Amino acid sequence: MEQHQPLTTWYVLFGLTQVTTIALILVDANPLADRLSAVGLLVLNSLWFVGYGLKLMRNGIEDRRGLVYAAGSLALWAPAVWLTGNATFALFGLVPQIYMMMPVTWAFFPMAVFVFTPQLLTWLAGADPALPWPGALLIVGFSQAFGWAVSRIAQQNEQRGELLERIEALTLETERARWAAEIHDTLAQGYTSIITLLQGAQPNVELALRTARENLREARALVASNSPSPLDGSSLEDALRRLVSGVALPSTFRVIGDARPLATSAEVVLLRTVQEALTNVARHSGASRVDVVMRFDEDGVSLEVRDDGRGFGDAPEGFGLRGMRARLEQVGGTLSLSSDEGASVLVEVPL
């Protein structure tokens, strides 16, 4: 199993078992030479872990190198058990190491060898095993179950991590798309209006300055993640009227029916749609005038932007129109286009 979680807990476990085992060896009744030799073997075993096994654990390596580590660890630990039975306590740290460096199915066999080693050495020495054979079998079964459980937890953590990475990637992509739409609907359109107005020479300079100020205010609102600035402190009708008056063409704006309160999300969509439509008129239509009509009825509200230009023709929809449709879908609205004696953009949003 790959290791994608902090290993500090395991390091502490290994360190504590080694220190405890050494302490138990030093206080037992075996000859001093045997005790010191066993301690030396356990120290070498610790160095073998730090120099070789630790790298396998950190890198999540699960191949034959795990078997190499297990063989080297057994070669250093088994003689210590022969010298003093208290060295058996090191199993509490050695068995988990095996499962940290091998797949569960591989780890069973070296784990069983480690567990039965003290039994075999005691039997070879002509003494009765301190741990009955049924007890050893129970430890083997428990160790395998423990290794399987740890493996499942690690797999679930890995899957959870991959899911979180995908969610983060989708979130970033969605946020980029949102910012692209916001910039297109505000800054790019504002600068387009400024260029169009300045091309009309001196009479439009004052209007260009006002549009520039509005655009700067919009940029600050975007950075501060506020609501669209044309709506700040004013009604939707007032905001639309300001947008229409800022067009460098003869224009009209009128409201039909009794105005009704709208959700903020619907107001934002309507405002952005008109803003996009007016920008398209100024840039592409070649129109001489534009009219905007806002109509309230029992079912909802509609907005129509109509000009006397060349119409849409057969050109495919650009980023602006696709963005308008996407915004409208968020509030259950629809977008209709027609090119009868000019161009018409009709937006309908249910109440």
Rank of each mutant, 00 (worst) to 15 (best):
R65H: 11
A212I: 02
L197A: 03
D185I: 07
A177Y: 06
V113S: 11
V140Q: 04
A70D: 08
A70H: 00
V95E: 05
A136V: 10
E165G: 05
P118S: 05
N204C: 08
L164T: 14
L121E: 02
E206P: 01
G141C: 09
A145L: 07
D185C: 04
Q199W: 03
A87C: 04
Q159P: 07
R64Y: 07
S193N: 08
V113I: 15
T84F: 02
G93L: 00
L91D: 04
P118T: 04
G66P: 02
A188N: 09
Q189C: 08
G135A: 02
Q159G: 12
A169S: 12
A169D: 10
T196E: 09
V95K: 02
W179M: 12
W123L: 10
P96C: 03
L163T: 11
I167Q: 14
N157M: 09
W179F: 07
G66A: 05
T122Q: 14
G85Y: 00
Y69F: 13
F109D: 14
R152Q: 15
L170S: 15
G200Y: 01
R160K: 12
V205D: 12
G147E: 02
Q189G: 14
L137G: 10
M100K: 04
A169Q: 14
E162I: 09
Q155Y: 09
R210L: 10
W133Q: 10
Q156A: 14
A87R: 04
D185L: 09
G141K: 02
Q155L: 10
V104E: 14
Q189T: 13
T192A: 15
W77E: 00
I183N: 06
T84P: 01
F146K: 01
T122E: 14
E182K: 11
L67G: 02
A87L: 05
E158K: 08
A75T: 03
Q156I: 10
A78H: 06
T196A: 13
A145H: 02
N204K: 00
